[in-house]
Design a protein around this nucleic acid. Structure first.
Lengths: 175, 175
DNA sequence: TATTGTTATACTCTATAACTATA
DNA sequence: TATAGTTATAGAGTATAACAATA
């Protein structure tokens, strides 16, 4: 429910004109927003991306690039379009990203004989080296990724997030 | 190996320098990325924001604007800077957002006598009406926010997310 | 001098549609 | 005609620093 904070039209900032407490202090109330998954997801992502951005300063790879490179390394020969679809990246954007990778010799583009409209991607040695260098910064259950959670809670969070986005516990766990 | 070898024969995609299976099919493996909280958070947020964007088409408020408006309604007289800090919005960006709100008569800006450098915000009737109209689209545990989760799992996810970003179960739950 | 908010500018992402080439 | 990818352009969002007013 939310029926608080009735009309406080002329709420003087500090001089409380109405019963509702005024937030001239520091901690302000999030109210029902605390039960809004979209809001929480955005807040959590903003915190993480901030930390990732700091870290990406020390390595020639952003977190987004790291993700794409890892996907290519894990799926050699993957079609560019499939990769874009899986990562929610539009084809037009993927083209620029991949071309930049090619310019830096991180990935190889190949047009297969079977269907010459498509582009297949594979990792190159420099790409693999970049991944290895960045893994410690961006990867796994690292401390900077935990927020206020302990390792067990983080795994629980991860599982719920996988379930949330339909990334069920199916692939590549047991070959 | 799974043998759909009709194209895989000559597709040099397949015959890479690695022994790894080739993902010319559809579902591709996310590998260790499935244990990467940052990656999962981004994927989940992308799904949600996509749905929110569709919904915001039918109402003159984006999901981000809805969040800010609700915060102002919940904290009448809140200082603009505090609001920006709480929501991870830079002051420069907040200025434009608030001015747009003021132009649409959704919020009121007030410069208090106590400290004339600051700006205090409060909701106006049109703002409250906009919130009410948008609540059904953006709010709570709505179906569009659940992903593949049932209501209980979603609450569990919400709690872990609150913990993750330090939004502990402290505020405004029991006044 | 430090703080709060504003302005101006540039840069990164993203969205969209038109285009090429293959099928 | 449909599909895969490319190109070009515009728009939103965000970062940065310089600035004004106030403390």
């Amino acid at each position: 429910m939310q029926g608080n904070a009735d009309h406080a039209d002329h709420a003087k900032c500090a001089a409380s004109s109405l019963g509702e407490p005024v937030q001239s202090g520091e901690a302000l109330s999030f109210g029902d927003l605390r039960h809004n998954t979209g809001f929480l997801l955005r807040m959590a992502w903003l915190q993480v991306s901030e930390r990732l951005e700091e870290r990406s300063a020390s390595v020639p790879l952003t977190a987004a690039e790291y993700t794409i490179l890892r996907m290519i390394a894990q799926s050699p020969g993957v079609r560019q379009g499939h990769l874009a679809q899986a990562l929610y990246i539009k084809p037009a954007a993927m083209t620029r990203i991949i071309r930049a990778f090619e310019d830096r010799a991180l990935v190889a583009r190949e047009i297969p004989d079977g269907d010459r409209r498509t582009v297949c991607l594979s990792i190159r040695p420099a790409g693999r080296a970049a991944i290895d260098r960045a893994r410690a910064l961006f990867g796994g259950l690292a401390e900077h990724e935990r927020g206020q959670l302990d390792a067990q809670e983080q795994q629980q969070l991860n599982q719920l997030l996988r379930r949330f986005c339909g990334l069920e516990d199916s692939d590549s766990e047991l070959p």
